[in-house]
């Protein structure tokens, strides 16, 4: 009996507290930049796809909701032939972003992706790719990788020596 009265009293006191409820969707939520929401694929400073199809996001995904296939262009640059995220399975844990060696896959502060039909939650590469570098501007994986994928020649990358002359025995 006493506990019921106490509960009623405490509830009554809440009338005078600052309200936490906001009138969504009329009033938008303010999200922090590092909020883990919708997943996007970003582009590098040259406006090329950052994703190199390394499959690490897919391997890191605890619900296995990322499927992709890597392919190469004539210059040897690897990119995803298709990249699919099944958002009806995604738990927005952000492991994919952590696993990504090229800053391609990023979680952004947006959660407004509800659908009436579950099938519409399957996002393909066209739906995921954005025209921005996202949270990590300036990074270009192929500039620092050893590979020549049409971005820079052998030995022209950051912190690289010119290619070795294999016919030379000089020190």
């Amino acid at each position: 009996m006493l506990s019921i009265i106490r509960s009623i009293w405490l509830t009554f006191l809440h009338l005078f507290h600052k309200t936490e409820t906001i009138q969504y969707p009329e009033e938008k939520v303010q999200l922090r930049p590092r909020y883990r929401g919708r997943i996007v694929l970003t582009r590098d400073p040259d406006n090329q796809e950052r994703c190199v199809g390394c499959y690490l996001c897919a391997a890191a995904c605890p619900v296995d909701c990322i499927a992709l296939q890597a392919t190469e262009n004539e210059e040897g640059r690897r990119y995803p032939e298709f990249f699919r995220i099944n958002f009806s399975r995604c738990i927005f844990c952000g492991f994919c972003e952590e696993a990504c060696p090229t800053y391609a896959i990023q979680l952004i502060p947006d959660f407004e992706m509800a659908e009436y039909d579950r099938q519409n939650l399957v996002y393909e590469k066209e739906d995921l790719l954005i025209n921005s570098q996202g949270k990590y501007p300036g990074y270009n994986y192929y500039k620092v990788a050893g590979l020549d994928a049409g971005v820079k020649g052998k030995g022209e990358g950051t912190n690289e020596e010119p290619p070795v002359d294999r016919h030379s025995l000089l020190p």
Partner: peptide, 15 residues
């Protein structure tokens, strides 16, 4: 055991 993409590889056909 690290096999990936089970819940996405066929989801384009049926979720």
């Amino acid at each position: 055991h690290r096999y990936s993409g089970r819940t996405a590889m066929l989801s384009n056909e049926n979720v």
